[in-house]
Structures are given as structure tokens and as C-alpha cells.
Design a protein around this nucleic acid. Structure first.
Lengths: 216, 216
DNA sequence: GTCTATATTGCGATAGAC
DNA sequence: GTCTATCGCAATATAGAC
């Protein structure tokens, strides 16, 4: 197990990821998987002990970056609430860019939790929500954010802004004229988060042409 | 067909709605449906010509309010962009309150479109996005919204704010201390939309204790 | 309209050859 | 480690009795 992990195994995970993400666990048959991966039916049982084992392997690989990013964000506790949230938003955008199917796995597990994935995702998201909620509450306390801000609702909004686009990307990319934007994903998060920040800020002074105005 | 629609038929739709919404079309068997509805297997074929026909009936019933709300919003063209978006946000919140499973059907159809539901939902959402996008662009043109606002990204953010909570409600209600809020759903949308409005506004003057400050 | 009984298909899993 | 062949089961759908 030093290097060169088994090829069939990795190929199977790579092929299964988009299939499970789009069609769901119940919507994908092991025959479909083996045709797509150009392997034999029995390989799934051999490597993963069945279809469910394969799904768990896919999910595990998908979820790995979440606790890592959260740890990085927690390590930034010396930053201001705004700084911490900004850093966190960038982390989330980076994860979505690296794992384009992650948001759909999470969404699927939220709506219909798996025995394996349900508890893991619940734990990860609980920590993420706690991180955002804490930063928002602290910002209200310091006067950085609006005094009438409800940190719970604002946490949900922020989560929506950071994740909705990636949960619904197939349709959004079809419907909206994003072709003119080269790096839609990272640009979206940057722009949307900047608007969100102004929304929660405590009555910002006019700053139309300031340094934060890097979008035209 | 004057009154009193068939009881078995309506009961079947009512029972199938949460099952399809949470487990997906492939994840629900007709046996499970018939047990839950306390009817016979053959009733599904009799009334809906099979499992897929039942799903289509459920979806049709779920989607009905969308074009209605959009028409109402379009009729408000005399309002300012802010007024139109506010009205639209209230409509969306009302729909989610009346149809708690709608957001999951839409999400499911976006990720894995059905031959029947895919085109309908794409059409509905295209119109919704166009409505929001147009209002945002107009607001930028009139100086009501920030000049550096990207209407496409802002449309996505708004859609996320209005819908994310309802797409992920099972987990969010588990994770966040919403119990202190009595009417979470409508309160969430009102609060989140208000924050969003400040976020897109063109440098609002300070108004900390103004009339919009109804949240404590 | 509702039921039983059944036809037919496709599923996941695995024994055993190589 | 990969294959073929097959088992056992659950799926949808429907014919036909009532």
C-alpha cells in the first residue's frame, strides 16, 4: 500500500462519482457501472463488497476536503469576523471547484440520509454552521455587522449563497448567459459574497469607487 | 367530473408526494406506495397508468403555483425593481409554505431531469430567472442598485437565498436553533431578503433605527 | 373499482473456472 | 484479479375474477 493504488478500484470510483451524483444511489445499477467502467460485475463485490460499499468509498473521497477546510478556517481565529467569513467563503469556493459533484451528494444525503453518509454529513455541516453562526454573532457584538441581524437566518443565507449555485449548476449554466464569464465558479462566489457582506454590514459609509470596487 | 374527485386517486397523490420527494422516483416502489396508501397494487396502473404516471401527476400538482405566481409578479410591472423583487420574494415564500416538498422535486429534476418534468421545470425557471434578472438590470440602470452589480450573479444569489433553506430544510431544522422562531419559513425569507436588498442597494444612507428595523 | 394471481424483467450478489 | 454463469429476489405491470 506504499504507492500505485489499484487501477480498477480507482477507475471504478471515478466512474461511479458522476453517476451516483446525478442519478442517486437507487438510480444506478451495478450493471450500468460496470459498463461505464468497462469492467466485470464481480469487480464491485471484489473491491467494495457490493454496490453500497462503492457508494461509501465515493462519498468518503468526496467529503474529505470539508473538515480540512474547516480546520484551516478555525485556525484563523485572530481574524475579524469579516476576515474569517471571507476566508471561509474562499475555501468553500475552492472545494466546489475541485469537486463539482460534492454539492449534489450533500444535498442528496440531506434529503434522504444514508446510514453511512447521514451522520458524517450532519457532523460536518453542524460544524460549518456553527463556524458561520459564531462569526456572525461576534460581528454583531462588535458592531461590525448590523445590530438587527439574525445570525441564524444570516447563516442560512450565506450557506445558500455559497452552495446553491453548485447544487443547481446543470440548469443554471443552461439558463443563464454565463459564457461571457471565463471563471464563472470562483467569480460567482467572490461577487455574491461581496454583495452579502454589504448586506450584513452595519451601515457602511458610501464607498462607490473604493478598493472593494474591483468588478465592473 | 363536476365535483368530488376520486378519493383513491387523490389519496394516492397525497401519499406519493412526500415519498417521491424524499426518496426519489427510483427509490420508491409501487409496493411501498400501496402499503402507505392502503390500496392495491393495481390501483396505480388503473388510475395513473403506472408508477411514472403517478409521478407525473404529483409533479404537475406541485408545479401548478409557479406560473401563477410569476404571472402575478409580471403584472406588477408598474412597481420599482425593488418593489417587484419584494413582491416576487413574498410569492416564493408563500409557495414554499404551501408546498413544503416542491423545492426538492425541482432540485431532483434539475440534477436528473425526467422526460416529463425536465422541460416544464426548465421553462418555469427560465422565466423566473428572466424576471429577476430583468428587475436587477433595471435597478442598476436607474441607480437603485449598485453600479458594479452583476445581474446574472445577483440573480443566482437571490434564487439561492429564496430557495436553499427549503431545499435543505430537514437538516437545517435539525442543526439550527429555529425553535425560538415561531414562523421560521416566512420570517426567514423576509429577513434574508431584507439583508439581500441592502447588499445590492446603491450605497444606502445610514438608517439604523428606521422603519425597516422590525427585527430585534 | 378493487382484488388475486401471475407473467416478465431486471436487480444485486456470488460460486467456481481460469 | 478477472471472467462466466446463475441463483434468488424484488421490481412493474396486467389478465381476469368478482
Amino acid at each position: 500500500m506504499i504507492s500505485l493504488e489499484n487501477d480498477t478500484r480507482l477507475n471504478l470510483i471515478a466512474v461511479a462519482t458522476p453517476l451516483f451524483a446525478t442519478k442517486g444511489f437507487a438510480g444506478v445499477s451495478i450493471r450500468e457501472l460496470t459498463v461505464a467502467a468497462q469492467i466485470n460485475v464481480s469487480a464491485i463485490s471484489y473491491y467494495f463488497n457490493g454496490k453500497e460499499g462503492l457508494y461509501q468509498a465515493v462519498l468518503k473521497e468526496q467529503l474529505a476536503p470539508i473538515p480540512e477546510a474547516l480546520q484551516l478556517a478555525k485556525d484563523r481565529e485572530s481574524l475579524s469576523p469579516t476576515g474569517r467569513l471571507t476566508f471561509y467563503a474562499e475555501q468553500v469556493a475552492g472545494i466546489h471547484a475541485r469537486r463539482p459533484f460534492l454539492a449534489r451528494f450533500i444535498q442528496s444525503e440531506i434529503i434522504n440520509p444514508t446510514e453511512y453518509g447521514g451522520p458524517i454529513i450532519e457532523s460536518h455541516l453542524a460544524q460549518a454552521f456553527h463556524f458561520m453562526n459564531t462569526a456572525l454573532q461576534e460581528g454583531v457584538a462588535t458592531g461590525e455587522f448590523r445590530p438587527d441581524l439574525d445570525s441564524t437566518y444570516a447563516t442560512i443565507s450565506l450557506a445558500g449563497i455559497l452552495n446553491f449555485y453548485f447544487m443547481t449548476r446543470p440548469l443554471i449554466q443552461k439558463l443563464l448567459p454565463l459564457t461571457k464569464h471565463t471563471n464563472s465558479e470562483s467569480q460567482y462566489t467572490a461577487h455574491a459574497f461581496r454583495v452579502y457582506l454589504q448586506g450584513i454590514k452595519n451601515c457602511p459609509p458610501a464607498e462607490i469607487t473604493g478598493e472593494s470596487n474591483k468588478y465592473t
